[in-house]
């Protein structure tokens, strides 16, 4: 499949816009304010962001950068105060820090749940769930309950369920996967392996991924493009195309992140 990468390494390149057909997500001048009057808190301000179909984008930022708000806007769970959000992908699906599997359902039934909610028949559902569990290398554990699985396995079931949700509606539009620090609660070894697995699954499925993280190393390893957000309110500070930079990128991004954080001192 073809991947369109927005090579936007400086403010001047923001005008380079891909053709609408290849854009999965288009945010223009998006702002979000919670509350009114003196109690108002601005979570996001003036966000312009485009994500191409099949792109892997990492949103990086310290606490309070409005990452979760941004994901909620993309998922349609909240409405922006200003600006427009347009998502042309199929139903966006979420993955959280916790696997958040339904504890009363088996692994396979958890993966089937979004398909069931979308009204798919039993046979089609089962086949699809088996395929997806195979994709995340969990064939054979479909009958297990969440508590019988390790943390890493649960998170992979959650990934399979998110993929099921992203493709639950008919049509050709590839799915959009919104990931809110999905590996943050795992131990370092499991996280390392799952990052590799996520890349493999992403390449195999062609899904668009918007991945939120605190971790520069994780962002650089996974993403094609890293977007650094400032905190309170969240704005886009800079973005880097990972392919175009060498190994010094990690230090450069870390340096900028430090600057953003230091500006909040005192």
């Amino acid at each position: 499949m073809s991947k369109v990468t927005l090579t936007d390494s400086g403010p001047g390149l923001a005008e380079v816009r891909p053709a609408p057909a290849t854009t999965a997500v288009d945010l223009t001048g998006v702002g979000k304010t919670f509350g009114t009057g003196t109690a108002a808190v601005t979570a996001l301000r003036g966000i312009d962001l485009r994500v191409a179909h099949g792109e892997f984008l990492c949103l990086l930022g310290a606490s309070g950068c409005g990452k979760s708000t941004l994901l909620n806007l993309l998922a349609g769970l909240e409405k922006p105060t200003t600006g427009t959000v347009s998502v042309t992908a199929a139903r966006p699906s979420f993955m959280f820090q916790e696997a958040a599997l339904m504890p009363w359902l088996t692994a396979a039934r958890n993966v089937e749940l979004p398909l069931q909610l979308a009204g798919q028949g039993r046979g089609a559902r089962r086949t699809r769930a088996r395929e997806l569990l195979e994709l995340v290398r969990l064939d054979g554990v479909g009958d297990k309950r969440p508590h019988e699985l390790s943390g890493g396995m649960r998170q992979r079931v959650s990934l399979a369920r998110a993929l099921a949700a992203a493709t639950s509606t008919e049509g050709d539009a590839p799915g959009l996967l919104l990931m809110d620090e999905p590996f943050a609660a795992l131990d370092a070894i499991t996280r390392d392996v799952l990052q590799g697995e996520l890349l493999r699954v992403w390449e195999a499925t062609g899904t668009t991924v918007v991945f939120v993280t605190h971790d520069v190393r994780e962002a650089v390893r996974l993403a094609q493009r890293v977007v650094l957000l400032s905190s309170r309110p969240g704005t886009v500070v800079r973005e880097w195309s990972v392919d175009e930079h060498g190994p010094e990128l990690h230090d450069e991004i870390t340096g900028r992140l430090r600057q953003v954080i230091t500006s909040h001192a005192a």
């Binding site: 139903r91 958040a100 949700a165």
Partner: peptide
């Protein structure tokens, strides 16, 4: 746990379906 109804909503459960499945 509050995460479960939230996940249900993200997966497409609304109203009665949410009550029945979540």
């Amino acid at each position: 746990p509050p995460i479960l109804p939230r996940v249900g909503r993200v997966l497409g459960a609304r109203g009665l379906a949410s009550a029945r499945h979540v």
